[in-house]
Design a protein around this nucleic acid. Structure first.
Length: 468
DNA sequence: AGGCAATTTGG
DNA sequence: CAAATTGCC
């Protein structure tokens, strides 16, 4: 009897637990399925970059599967509500008596999967769910009082000890090559036009592996020194690939540990620090499962729900379009719009500016990032925003307000990043891009004056948090 | 994964 | 008197 593998954010054949198990159970009788849910994606603020990247990643997956004799069916449901019915129908059409999938962790996704499993049970179709989203599944590590961690450092200690003690699992092999099948055209996909920046982000597992290997061969050795300098290519740029599951976190960990002489928390300082970022990814996923309110437009720190945010659509629009008059913020926001991606240091600066300097609700920033990022991922994006806004787990204390001028001077001293994305400031001398006094007297007419005075805005933000 | 300014330190 | 340290937001 056949087995249906339902792909979601695990768009790969290597190290895919559900696909691997299905291939063991039903050799030669596996069918793949991906269900596009355009109205659900809209509700989840998936923008064009993310939707385009998923479409191309699904196409790459279909090719990979076809070479292994597995057909990938692509279906469309408006929302998750129609998914159980569709799954049962496809299982019937493909003569599949079981549906295998890798768990997703977001609230709506978990509700959807529970409804799917109930429906499959009623129809006497077997189902099996596998852990794939994290290196240690949520719930498997907890504080000494049995609660999910809400502070990163103790989480990291436990997480790394667990991984070191258990040893790393070898990534699972892809199903063996079989008689190739034809790849059906994805004619029913909801969007057809290409996102303008799609060439910056080739989809598929080969590109993911290429980025990982080239990073580990080179930039990873300097990661601890260069990672905060956005004009250097110091980071892996793997985030979009991890978000859609074009590569698994296990494979990434495996290769990074190997490049680090087998060490997880010792060895080369660059790789070690980078491995810590994988722990942040697990941490925010554990938080999402342990504290579902964070994904329901609620703050982790409930006392911050009474903060009186500004209602200022014009300031929000200036921030989104990169016209705040703060060069580092504007360069960041234009980079995000043009490329679908932003260096993490710049995400922090842009987020601190929105929530503290403009005192705008972090949810407005979170939504804009989700809509703009090619790596859009609820757990990481929400975690990052609530960190910057001081509303989250292990967040920056409210009185720690980034000074955008200082951040700019420290991390883009020669304005190489700023000049690239704010060309009207290209001619300014070094130093001027971080100096409000200089900009006040010597600023091109086309570039806006600063939206706020940082010192005054800082005092206002601290007062708003203190007096909530 | 801060910033700021008062205070102390050290040449 | 500049640099490091401290206390506070």
């Amino acid at each position: 009897m056949g087995t249906l593998v339902w792909f979601r954010s695990d768009l790969r054949v290597e190290d895919n637990p559900a696909l691997h198990a299905a291939s063991q159970r039903s050799p030669g009788r596996v069918t793949g399925l991906f269900i596009a849910t355009p109205r659900q994606w809209e509700r989840h603020d998936w923008g064009e970059p993310k939707r385009d990247f998923v479409r191309r990643s699904v196409a790459a997956l279909a090719d990979e599967l076809a070479g292994r004799g597995i057909t990938l069916r692509v279906e469309v449901c408006p929302t998750f509500a129609q998914v159980p019915e569709t799954l049962v129908e496809i299982a019937r059409q493909t003569d599949s008596r079981a549906v295998y999938f890798n768990r997703e962790l977001e609230w709506n996704e978990r509700q959807r999967d529970a409804a799917v499993v109930r429906k499959l049970d009623r129809m006497e179709i077997e189902s099996a769910a596998f852990d794939d989203q994290t290196l240690i599944p949520p719930g498997e590590i907890e504080t000494s009082t049995g609660k999910p961690y809400s502070v990163f450092t103790p989480f990291f200690r436990n997480w790394s000890r667990r991984l070191e003690d258990s040893g790393l699992d070898l990534p699972l092999p892809a199903p063996e090559a079989g008689d190739a099948v034809e790849v059906p055209p994805m004619e029913n996909w909801p969007d057809s036009r290409d996102w303008p920046a799609h060439r910056l982000w080739p989809a598929g597992p080969h590109e993911a592996t290429r980025r990982l290997e080239s990073f580990l061969d080179d930039a990873a050795r300097r990661y601890h020194e260069d990672r905060d300098l956005p004009h250097r290519a110091a980071t892996s740029t793997l985030s979009p690939y991890l978000a859609v599951g074009a590569i698994s976190a296990r494979s990434v960990l495996w290769q990074a540990v190997r490049a680090n002489g087998g060490e997880l928390i010792q060895g080369q300082p660059g790789i070690t620090l980078w491995l810590r970022q994988l722990a942040w990814r697990d941490f925010y996923r554990h938080v999402l499962v342990g504290f579902p309110r964070v994904s329901k437009y609620r703050a982790f720190r409930e006392e911050t729900e009474t903060i009186e945010w500004n209602d200022d659509p014009e300031a929000l629009e200036a921030w989104k379009s990169g016209r705040t008059g703060f060069p580092i913020v504007d360069a960041s926001m234009r980079c995000l719009a043009e490329t679908g991606w932003l260096h993490n240091r710049l995400r922090m600066i842009a987020a601190s500016f929105l929530t503290k300097d403009l005192l705008l609700d972090w949810r407005q920033g979170e939504e804009h990032f989700m809509r703009s990022l090619v790596d859009a991922d609820l757990a990481n994006n929400n975690g990052g925003w609530q960190w910057a806004a001081s509303t989250g787990t292990d967040a920056v204390p409210y009185f720690r307000v980034f000074n955008p001028w200082t951040q700019s001077k420290r991390f883009d001293p020669k304005a190489q990043f700023i000049r690239r994305f704010v060309p009207e400031l290209d001619e300014l001398p070094n130093g001027a891009h971080h100096d409000p006094k200089h900009l006040a007297t010597d600023r091109p007419a086309t570039y806006p004056a600063p939206l706020v005075d940082h010192q005054a805005a800082r005092r206002r933000a601290i007062a708003a948090f203190r007096d909530r």
